[in-house]
């Protein structure tokens, strides 16, 4: 579904991605972990073209993301992304936030998109908040709306960029539950997170990034039981000790 081949990226003089190779199958859940600044968020943003790459190739669903002939707007309809800071549109109601994509981008009729949105709101458990504005919701609710907004486009792939890092601890589980549900429905997902519990349960494979490279990639079980890379071992010791 997603193929990343020898991807390099620079920010000015800073070499942030140093030759990433990655294959993600349809229906697979891949969790990216690593210290902050290791390049995992950047990699995620490259996958839907929010950041440009200077070398290599990223193919999603047989479309080459960084080829100039590719219609990025078209590709992005297939790739949903959920940000750390929600990034809901503050001047629109929850309903409008969810329907704006289907109506304006996919040109689905307003009634039909509204039905989709009502379904999604029911699913994320806050049907009564449809006419609220984002800043009237809790952080957990906002993030669930952001997930619904992405799902409303019926994407083939969902990317999550530290979706729970900006949340109060008591709200993390409501978001993670929703993500687990998605995973069990065989949605292809790439998740950057620090939630090791989620990684262990929901991930098919876990990739550990360090210094702009993938240091280790392994099925979840094996990754935690006997990590091969020295840096991975130290990282796991640190996060599991807390």
């Amino acid at each position: 579904m997603i193929a990343v081949q020898d991807v390099h990226k620079w920010f000015g003089l800073l070499h942030v991605l140093k030759g990433i190779d990655l294959e993600i199958a349809q229906g697979e859940v891949l969790v990216l972990i690593g210290a902050s600044g290791s390049g995992k968020s950047t990699l995620l943003r490259c996958i839907n073209g929010l950041e440009k790459i200077q070398h290599g190739k990223i193919v999603v669903d047989e479309m080459d993301i960084h080829k100039s002939r590719t219609n990025l707007n078209k590709v992005r309809q297939e790739i949903g992304i959920v940000f750390q800071s929600f990034n809901l549109f503050p001047h629109m109601t929850v309903m409008k936030n969810i329907t704006i994509g289907p109506t304006k981008v996919k040109r689905i009729s307003p009634q039909e998109s509204k039905e989709i949105a009502v379904q999604l709101l029911k699913r994320i458990g806050i049907p009564e908040k449809a006419d609220f504005y984002p800043d009237q919701l809790s952080g957990g609710q906002q993030q669930r709306v952001a997930i619904a907004r992405a799902l409303a486009m019926k994407p083939k792939v969902m990317l999550f960029d530290e979706p729970t890092s900006a949340l109060d601890p008591e709200m993390i589980s409501e978001v993670l539950d929703l993500m687990r549900e998605l995973a069990s429905e065989k949605m292809t997902m790439v998740v950057v997170t620090h939630e090791m519990g989620f990684a262990r349960e929901a991930a098919n494979r876990i990739a550990f990034m360090a210094d702009g490279q993938i240091a280790e990639i392994a099925p979840a079980e094996e990754f935690f039981k006997n990590p091969k890379d020295e840096r991975t071992r130290r990282f796991i010791e640190k996060v599991l000790a807390v």
């Binding site: 839907n48 929010l50 990025l72 707007n73 078209k74 590709v75 992005r76 309809q77 790739i79 949903g80 992304i81 940000f83 990034n87 809901l88 549109f89 704006i100 994509g101 304006k104 981008v105 996919k106 907004r149 992405a150 486009m153």
Partner: peptide, 8 residues
Amino acid sequence: EAARSLGM
């Protein structure tokens, strides 16, 4: 970014 990632 949020708008563009919806395909707008």
